[in-house]
Design a protein around this nucleic acid. Sequence first.
DNA 1: AGTGAATACTTGACTAGTCAACCATTCGGT
DNA 2: ACCGAATGGTTGACTAGTCAAGTATTCACT
Lengths: 159, 159
Amino acid sequence: MKSRASAVQQEIKQSRPFANREQEAIVALLRTTDVLRRHLSSVVDPHGITLQQYNVLRILRGAGGALPTMEIGERMIEEAPGVTRMLDRLEKKNLVKRTRQSTDRRQVQCAITKEGLRLVEALDAPVNDADLAALAGLSPEQLDGFIRSLDAVRAACAA
Amino acid sequence: MKSRASAVQQEIKQSRPFANREQEAIVALLRTTDVLRRHLSSVVDPHGITLQQYNVLRILRGAGGALPTMEIGERMIEEAPGVTRMLDRLEKKNLVKRTRQSTDRRQVQCAITKEGLRLVEALDAPVNDADLAALAGLSPEQLDGFIRSLDAVRAACAA
DNA sequence: AGTGAATACTTGACTAGTCAACCATTCGGT
DNA sequence: ACCGAATGGTTGACTAGTCAAGTATTCACT
């Protein structure tokens, strides 16, 4: 066991082993998310939408109503400029509608359209299937531990 | 416990709870990597280099010698065009040197320069510190389980 | 009421990643 | 030796994310 190269190390074909277990975990985390993103994209892309666009639409649906641009940015952990341009693209596809609010004319209220809603709903099942498939290798206990670990990493990075 | 909203759910302020534990794990994974990437970028960026550029330099150092463009792409899990342009930028900064090989004139051999090597070495300690900090909240056993889980997810997505 | 700071975006310029199309070189089979 | 296919890369066009700078509106305070 000790002598066998780890899964990640084989994948990156690095000659020297990892200096420590933490470094290995970081590389594994970055690579895994890369692979997962591709996995999910392959489900969403055929519907004429990108994974990020799907993500925004799901946020808007989950919000239950309109959200200002910056609020969307906070939920996506993304700066405002990126959100503005995402919304530009979504509006061009008629999946989102933007209106300036009269109470505070600085804000732009963003809402998902019926067409957008229909699209997200059509993707619910296939995306959930893909989620399940990605985690099929983990037992319920492993899954719990996994989520806890991720929470801990997020907390540590934020600190 | 059952009644309290999960960490991720609070963060995204979604009104409805996750349909299942797997969905929660997927969102947690995507968000965690996002946060981690920012965390690491903040260490690397001040040295005038991006996280991806650092990644390429580390691959080249780890290889011990020159690598053809496509080989770099495989280790980064990235398509060739992106790699070509990355190398363009790195070459402009004199951190990488490219030469066409005489044995197979289609290939472009890429090697890290002395300047590049010096830069990566200067980043070794701070990056390792950041890695350790990000995972400081996990016990050694948790860390092992975490890596195993990531390996399993990667395997499932590849399948 | 009036000015200066804060808020909510928007725009420009750049890094990065993807797909499709393209060129050059090499390989395989006859 | 030669022609078609495969390999290795580059270029163009697009999505996406970041920072810096700009605009419009609102707030806070005298």
